[in-house]
Simulated scan of single mutants.
Amino acid sequence: MIDALTDHPAFAAARARRSWSKVTDEAPDRDELLALIAAAGRVADHSALRPWRLIELRGADRTRLGAAIAKAEGDSKPSTKPMRAPLLIAVVASYRKTDKVPRWEQEAVASGVAHMLSLLLDEAGWGVFWRTGSSTRSKAVAKAHGLGKNEELLGWLYVGGKPAGARAGRRKPVDAKKFLTRMPKKA
């Protein structure tokens, strides 16, 4: 059973995933992005709340984000960080009112969508990295994204082409034995 799994394309894609901190000016078009988001949105989601949304930032949107980040950080010059990729996808936890599904679980769903989308983008040939930082929870950046009172920005997926001949950021292999434990026999 495990041999069949390790040969599966999804397994190979997960093991090969890397962050691409430098990308080219190419990016997926809206139709490709919509197809990938439709698939990424299939993550486990207790009560099917879909407590997330994504915001597409291209062109001048990135300049406005740079100004909002500067305001949040008290800088006089706009941040150039949003200019590091032609497409940024803001990941938003959009919390739903429910007694059944706690807030942390809804945030986990939004994070799951972002991770699944990053895997799908990578598998489609795009370079991706997830950027966060203190400004993600600032009022200026929330306002720039048009966030509602029940929403929080979790970060941005930076997306662009994979540079020819470039290598993705390195990741050490995961020693699964260090992370998989058993429940104690006695508490």
Rank of each mutant, 00 (worst) to 15 (best):
R167C: 10
S138L: 05
H145D: 05
L121R: 07
L147M: 06
R131K: 15
R62C: 11
S76L: 14
R131Q: 13
A68G: 06
R42A: 11
G133W: 08
P82F: 14
L121A: 07
R50D: 04
V113H: 04
L33D: 01
V91S: 04
D29Y: 10
L153Y: 00
G127V: 11
R50W: 00
G160E: 04
E107A: 11
A90P: 07
K71L: 14
L49V: 03
W126P: 04
V141W: 02
K81Y: 01
R50C: 07
A44C: 11
A60S: 15
G165C: 13
K139F: 00
L33C: 10
L88V: 13
A168Q: 04
E107T: 13
I89F: 07
I89H: 08
A166Q: 13
E123V: 02
T136W: 00
A164G: 11
R103Y: 08
T80Y: 07
S47Q: 14
A166G: 03
A35N: 09
L65R: 03
G41V: 11
L117R: 02
G66V: 11
V91Y: 00
R103H: 12
E151D: 05
Y158A: 14
A60W: 04
E151W: 00
T80V: 13
G112V: 05
K143G: 06
V109A: 11
A90T: 05
E56W: 13
E151S: 10
G59L: 12
A44I: 01
R62F: 08
E32C: 12
P51T: 04
G161N: 07
V159D: 09
G133R: 06
V109F: 07
H115Q: 14
P78A: 15
A70Q: 11
V141M: 03
T136V: 15
D29R: 12
